[in-house]
Computed example of a mutant assay.
Amino acid sequence: MTWMPDLDPTPGDAGACDLIDTVIVPRARDLGGFEVRRALPSPKRQMVGPFIFFDQMGPAEFLETGGIDVRPHPHIGLATVTYLFEGEIHHRDSLGSDLAIRPGELNWMTAGSGIVHSEREDPQVKGKPRKLFGIQSWVALPKHAEETAPAFEHVGRDNLPVLEDNGVSVRVIAGDLFGARSPVKTASETIYADVTLEPGRSMPVDATHEERAIYTVGGTIEIAGESFEEGQLLVFKPGDNITVRATGLLPARFLVLGGEPMDGPRYIWWNFVSSSKERIDQAKEDWKQMRFDTVPGDAEDFIPLPGR
């Protein structure tokens, strides 16, 4: 394959060296032996492109207890995006979707006017030593799609395009990069990719998308002479050419994310996202009054409305 050409920052050029608008170090939350790091929303930044929520799950290792057991809960006005590096999670939703997601695969669930889902581990997985490491993110829907019919799309590992060349590997999760496009349908222009660089290798992140960031997953990277470790969200300034280089002895892994700026501010409360506070209030009442659909095979349990 041939990489798209890009320009390296010019040493000593203040415009090229001052490429990063915001650095976000996610706040960690311990969920009983299982750590989640939340990068978005942040006091520094609510969204990058359509991405309004970004959680790193793990890395964690479970022996005979613990694990993922998220009871049925509702969403509106967004799409949930689940992508794993290690482990397995079983997804069920009120549309009847019922399947496990594994590393390198994609679950894209469009909530739209309202959906309910659960995320658990299968019984045969529990009680065995296992690992879990991945990212769950939400993308806000543009106003014209906020009340769209709910939908679910699972894309297998072999159906997400992978570009490899001389120590650089890119799996395109959503949108397009370097001429390769993910098959998942998005409501707005979106880029999401999983990148691995062997030590010493570099890759451009061009300025095609107005809002861009990378989330460092493993190893050490360098941008315009500055070094960054794993577990940071680096939000770039619009219009600048970026080159990311892997330093250190181990490969570097990061996610590229971003896309078209959202068409106005968004309100976020619990699992609800909307351009309207009144719509969120309606969703609260609908969940309280049990007006959402239930999850087939997982209808007996649910997460109550916070504060109830």
Rank of each mutant, 00 (worst) to 15 (best):
H73K: 00
E86R: 14
I101D: 12
A39I: 10
P50T: 11
H91Q: 01
D93W: 05
H117W: 01
V48A: 06
I89A: 12
I101V: 15
T80W: 00
R38Y: 12
I89M: 13
D93A: 05
R71N: 11
T110Y: 02
A79T: 14
Q56W: 14
G58S: 05
G67N: 09
F51V: 00
L106I: 08
P41N: 06
M47W: 11
I115D: 00
I115T: 11
F53M: 08
G77D: 07
E86W: 04
R45H: 10
H73T: 00
P41Y: 01
H73A: 05
D98H: 04
G67F: 02
S94F: 10
G67Y: 03
E35D: 13
E105Y: 02
D93F: 08
D55S: 09
G33M: 12
G112V: 01
A60C: 07
F51D: 01
L95S: 09
P41C: 03
M47G: 06
S42D: 12
G77K: 10
R37I: 00
H117T: 00
L99P: 04
P43M: 14
L78R: 09
E35G: 13
V36L: 13
Q56P: 06
P72H: 04
S94V: 05
S42P: 09
V116E: 06
L84S: 09
R102S: 08
R37E: 13
L78F: 07
E64I: 11
F53G: 06
I115A: 05
Q56A: 06
L78Q: 09
D98R: 05
I76A: 03
S94W: 10
L95R: 14
L95N: 07
P59N: 04
P43Y: 10
G87Y: 01
L99D: 13
G112S: 06
H90N: 08
T82L: 09
L63G: 12
G96V: 01
L40K: 05
Y83P: 01
T80H: 01
H73E: 06
L78T: 14
H117P: 01
V116Y: 02
A111M: 07
G33Q: 14
F62C: 08
E105N: 00
P103I: 02
